[in-house]
Design a protein around this nucleic acid. Structure first.
Lengths: 136, 136
DNA sequence: GCCTGTGATGTTATCTTGTAACACATTTGC
DNA sequence: GCAAATGTGTTACAAGATAACATCACAGGC
């Protein structure tokens, strides 16, 4: 199985169920919310969710939002899971906008190398109010 | 009391104790670690720590690291608590490097405004290996 | 003096998030 | 077929965070 490409069909049963739950939601879900949604599918314990999530994040199909302790399905078509991705999280409607920006990534890389720091994972999250909720 | 400047002397007893614990540590502390360290000073419940932390973060004296669920004392002398700050977190030694970069902040602002997004709080955290641990 | 509002504190219980440990099943490569 | 690796199920528990309620300290107005 390729390390960077995972079609839905290549997932295990539990991974597919968790992926499905996240794909159908238009806002982030916590592990326990996912667990509740999948009770009818036989999920009983948090570990079943966390194990699936770990893999999905590893595959780059799902992102973890550190500031929310929640997870979203990746909306970025060609996302390979290794780029610097910025998230804009609306605190009013819960929508998450996923942005992959080269210049931002470049700047972070510069700052890191200037400090002799070798980054493994980056977290960039903006909390605020999205355009829609602004006017409303 | 001024909103942006808080000398240690202006803090309440609990706030000062928590601030002291964080200042003496050279790596981030979780709320519960702080609680344990302050048992001898009369701390009994997590809320005592969390309430102090809330204020200290509000004052800009302490930063919360979302990806660690932990807190660090602000090392940036003139930090006003309202800027975009990037953290480089060494996963080997635990050291945290706090960086305030204008160009990074500017780029984030651009991206947000392009999306019609009004940011309230930003989280930028790089996890990796610091210069010291690289050579070691 | 005395009342009153505001902010800090203390305490118990509870909720949410995440893992450890152990047993069993399934797939995969040889 | 068989061993190794990976996935699954379950119980119990650790770690992080907050709700609800009572009390205390102090400043300002009357």
């Amino acid at each position: 199985m390729n390390e960077h490409f995972h079609a839905t069909s290549e997932l295990t049963k539990n991974q597919a169920l968790v992926m499905g739950a996240l794909s159908q939601s238009d806002s982030p879900l916590s592990a326990y919310t996912i667990l509740d949604q999948l009770r009818d599918d036989g999920f009983r314990a948090p570990l079943q969710v966390y194990r699936a999530l770990d893999k999905l994040v590893e595959f780059g199909l799902v992102h973890r939002l550190e500031s929310l302790n929640a997870f979203v399905a990746c909306r970025h078509p060609g996302c390979d899971g290794h780029q610097t991705i910025a998230f804009m999280i609306c605190e009013t409607c819960g929508l998450v906008n996923e942005i992959s920006d080269t210049s931002l990534a470049e700047r972070l890389k510069q700052l890191a190398s200037k400090a002799g720091f070798v980054p493994k994972k980056s977290t960039v999250e903006l909390r605020g109010i999205c355009g829609n909720c602004q006017t409303a």
